[in-house]
Design a protein around this nucleic acid. Structure first.
Lengths: 193, 193
DNA sequence: CGTCTATTTGAATGTACTCAAAAGCGGTGG
DNA sequence: CCACCGCTTTTGAGTACATTCAAATAGACG
């Protein structure tokens, strides 16, 4: 069960068996049903999720009540309200469950303590954050330079499996168009081929 | 001269005089005239800039030859092609000089060595990267939820001083509209007040 | 002062949105 | 097992925000 998260660490740092155990001791396992809201704006969100199974999504709701999805998390991915987590602020995002999930929860205070016990963990989360930053920079530019169709292609590359099991209004929200427009775009794409 | 960068470090970590000296020894000072291209796509970009004076910008050029600005760097800010720097890839961005500048250059290999000598430096760059990540996540959402006018307001909050001295086509490019539209939008804003 | 670039203005166009309504699909209870 | 309910997806018409192209004007710099 914890194999997935240990593999995740091993990708960037080497850990001894004792160190692995130290980390595992800090993790809390939890299971949630689809549609459960895990974090909503204003909540304390001083922890992050590591997804073992299922899918989470994070999003903001605008003045008109429309949701805008910032990210999905599938098995092997981390999910947090970074603004809340890193800056010790109340949450600004909603995080909820798209498909019944199995997650590990890691509190910030535990991470801070682990940084002292296992300094190379700092390296791990630095690299994770860096990769996340690069992806977000690219997404900013994608939104400026690409059409909705091209952004959809990018989405398919990034989340190849997810495509089949996600309601397409979530995909529309992620690439930044309305569900109606996305539907029309998709049928246009099919007619082309 | 190096006061600005030492202050930058002190904001998140404490350094001894020896440690400060270790870092200063690795920094290379350089000056460039406006319009100098520092990095262009395909270049090796295994270093980052710390701006002491002047302004830099980073951008990509799309298929139609239009530029899209990812970021500006004013005194006290860092600038790099993160994709190239972190992933050891050829540059994908152009970085050039908006206003005559004074910069410090720090090579990745030196940073890696400094991480070993001064492990808390890892903390510093982790925090810097985290803040940058949060800003980019917000920008993704801003582009999805806000109108051009509102994004312009956000820009003015983030870069209050820069507004006067930047050609407005750069501001247009940063918020993601054409210079023509930006001009019309601005005159509309003036008429309102 | 002349040249080059940036900005403004206008008209036509396009991409994506809103609103409304119909069709499809999935789960639940009778 | 089927009928119904709620939610998602599709389709269409009208609209809005932003772009493109073109031309005129204004500014900056040598």
């Amino acid at each position: 069960m914890s194999q997935l998260i240990l593999d995740s660490f091993r990708k960037y740092i080497d850990l001894s068996l004792e160190e692995e155990q130290e980390i595992l001791n800090r993790l809390h396992h939890a299971q949630y049903k689809a549609k459960t809201v895990l974090i909503k704006p204003g909540d304390t969100a001083d922890f992050s999720y590591f997804v073992l199974d299922g899918i989470l999504k994070s999003y903001t709701t605008d003045a008109n009540g429309a949701d805008h999805i910032l990210s999905f998390a599938t098995p092997g991915w981390w999910m947090a309200d970074m603004y809340a987590y890193l800056g010790d602020n109340p949450a600004i995002m909603t995080i909820d469950v798209v498909e019944d999930c199995d997650v590990l929860i890691l509190y910030k205070k535990d991470v801070e303590e682990l940084y002292i016990q296992i300094p190379k963990l700092e390296r791990f989360f630095r690299i994770l954050t860096q990769n996340n930053l690069i992806a977000n920079q690219q997404r900013v530019l994608d939104k400026m330079t690409l059409t909705a169709e091209e952004r959809y292609e990018r989405f398919l590359e990034k989340f190849p499996k997810v495509n089949q099991c996600l309601p397409q209004k979530y995909i529309a929200s992620y690439i930044g168009v309305t569900p109606e427009f996305f539907s029309k775009m998709k049928s246009r794409l099919l007619r082309k081929k």
